[in-house]
Amino acid sequence: MSAPILELRALSKSFGPVHAVKTVSLAAHAGEVIGLIGDNGAGKSTLTRMIAGAIRPDQGDIIVNGQKEHFETAQDARRAGIETVFQTLALVPGLDIVENIFLGRELLVPGATGRATRTMDVAAMRRRVEEGYQRFGLNLPDMRTKVAALSGGQRQVVAIARAVLWGSGVVVLDEPTAALGVKQTELVLSFIERLRSHKVAVIFISHNMQHVMRVADRVCVLRLGRKVHDGPMSKLSGTDLVALMTGATIAAQ
């Protein structure tokens, strides 16, 4: 297998006396969907926030494309090619889909005049989003629809699409299907499945077993801050996963 895009080496993080994450290692390759599961308090969100640059690990290294990275801010992580989509989605309801995708990174008209007058290249931005719609077969309404008019699932897809369109090698999804209805969930899951063929590594965090089993190639189980399992999805059943999450088969490991 090729070198991993993202590699975590023995990451640890404590909050006072609480060891939230203890020496967790993980490697993510392009075209791979990794399901990261665990019960409440297993360390999923602490791990996610370390990858996203929101908090710094006490120990261990984050390696992106063979390069050791020290994220001070979320922007650093983004610059290194890791986009994290949190449940808050970071979308502005009053702006449309294109405006949201390019928010804070608007394209300007090329040339000195465009830069000096800060004139946006609206056509180029629309073209890029249009291409994205085609490439990923996005099932979204017209790209000039305001995000306020989109459903929860559609918003999730927009947030993920923004991460992917910005050319990130790694997309971390924090509970993307939480609080979504059946159809909305389907919209999001089928989009994640399609990402696999686009050389993106997806880390899918969830505690919904069905959703993880549906999209993940590999599953990684956290329990009480430690990684207790890491292996191909195909060999596991839902019962196995629950057992791993709750610790029932730790002895059998």
Partner: peptide
């Protein structure tokens, strides 16, 4: 008019007024 409709500022102002936390998170 230029700043409101043709420059990034217009969108950024809508983001600041409509969803300030999100705008800050994005780096506006």
């Amino acid at each position: 008019l230029h700043l409101w409709y043709r420059a990034p500022l217009g969108r950024h102002m809508i983001a600041v007024g409509g969803a300030k936390d999100t705008a800050a998170e994005i780096g506006i």
